[in-house]
């Protein structure tokens, strides 16, 4: 599956959190690629390991309690998991940047916006003070903030949530990264602001021709921006493929259930479908397919054997043998 041309290629990544008497397998064998100039969406209910996957790419999983239990993270064909701390610092913010879910708490309250953006520039590049100021202003302009010179002197509490998220985006763009990871960047914002931020990210991605790994629990967002989609469930990739393939012909019961629970015009006035049950605690996942207790297509095998990936061609894979060619898909032990 690993395509050599991919910018980022995550292979069989496993991240566990150990506590005194249990091991939470938050990410349990995840593989996906992000190609150049591609927007890949990582979708799944909350608690299924999306943030941990993103933090692993950044080398920011807190260790301990976390532990990278296996796999590779190839960025430009080099395994980031082999990098030492100072090599990783040169990657972070410079080649891979991350935008976080909570704009309200992700900026340091005691430093000005100018300080915080300028710092992101200076850590990786040599620039004079006036160049830094000029660049920071340009960045703020790029993310659609009015009166950038004044805003640079503001503290985070003087800005609204949407403006702060724009600042976070500006900060992420400071060193022209090849890959931007956006972890639910609009979840904490209200709906109109969400749409603006989404459009902004989309424009910037095209303008700067960078790759984006966009994390969300909202399939509605996905249809607007994704090139490819990875559906994640309980620490594994349930299904992945091109946007249209996954949204129009979903092959995993979990993807189908997520789509069924989306509101749309035809369903107006009806009760919305919701998936019964909840995401399992990563320390106590059911045997076999982790989704089987909530699945409508469960057969005997599902609770006993681990499902294998089934190939639908053109990069479309789903980890559900039951729905594959009348149940002839492969199972692992």
């Amino acid at each position: 599956m690993a395509d050599n041309k991919a910018l980022l290629s995550v292979e069989e990544l496993k991240v566990y959190f150990r506590s005194e008497d249990e091991v939470a397998r938050a990410v349990d064998g995840v593989s996906f690629d992000v190609g150049r100039e591609e927007t890949v969406c990582l979708v799944g209910e909350s608690g299924c390991g999306k943030t941990v996957t993103a933090l692993s790419v950044m080398g920011l999983v807190p260790i301990p309690p976390g532990e990278i239990a296996g796999g590779k993270i190839l960025f430009r064909a080099k395994n980031l998991l082999d990098f030492n701390d100072s090599d990783m610092q040169k990657v972070r913010g410079n080649q891979i940047a991350m935008i976080f879910q909570e704009p309200l708490t992700s900026l340091n309250p005691v430093f000005t916006i100018g300080d915080q953006i300028g710092e992101a520039i200076q850590i990786h590049q040599t620039a004079t003070q006036s160049e830094v100021v000029e660049r920071s202003q340009q960045l703020l302009k790029d993310v659609g903030i009015a009166d950038p010179a004044q805003r640079l002197r503001d503290y985070p509490h003087q800005l609204s949530g949407g403006q702060r998220q724009r600042v976070m985006i500006a900060m992420a763009l400071a060193c022209d990264p090849d890959l931007v990871i956006a972890d639910e960047p609009t979840t904490a914002l209200d709906v109109t602001v969400q749409a603006q931020i989404l459009r902004l990210l989309d424009t910037i991605q095209k303008m700067r021709s960078m790759s984006v790994l966009y994390i969300t629990h909202d399939l509605g967002v996905v249809s607007k921006i994704a090139d490819r989609i990875c559906v994640m469930y309980a620490g594994i990739i349930a299904e992945q493929g091109n946007k249209d393939a996954v949204l129009k012909t979903p092959k995993h019961p979990y993807t189908q259930a997520l789509l069924a629970s989306l509101p749309n015009r035809e369903k107006r006035g009806q009760r919305l479908y919701s998936i019964p049950g909840t995401v399992p605690n990563p320390a106590y996942k059911p045997d076999g397919c982790p989704f089987h207790p909530r699945c409508q297509h469960t057969i005997q095998n599902c609770s006993e054997q681990y499902p294998g990936m089934c190939d639908y061609g053109d990069g479309h894979h789903a980890r559900c043998p039951v729905l594959f060619e009348g149940g002839k898909g492969n199972w692992c032990d």
Partner: peptide
């Protein structure tokens, strides 16, 4: 969170 942001910048 802002400490995580600081780390993510590559400081």
């Amino acid at each position: 969170d802002y400490v995580r942001t600081a780390k993510a910048k590559g400081l």
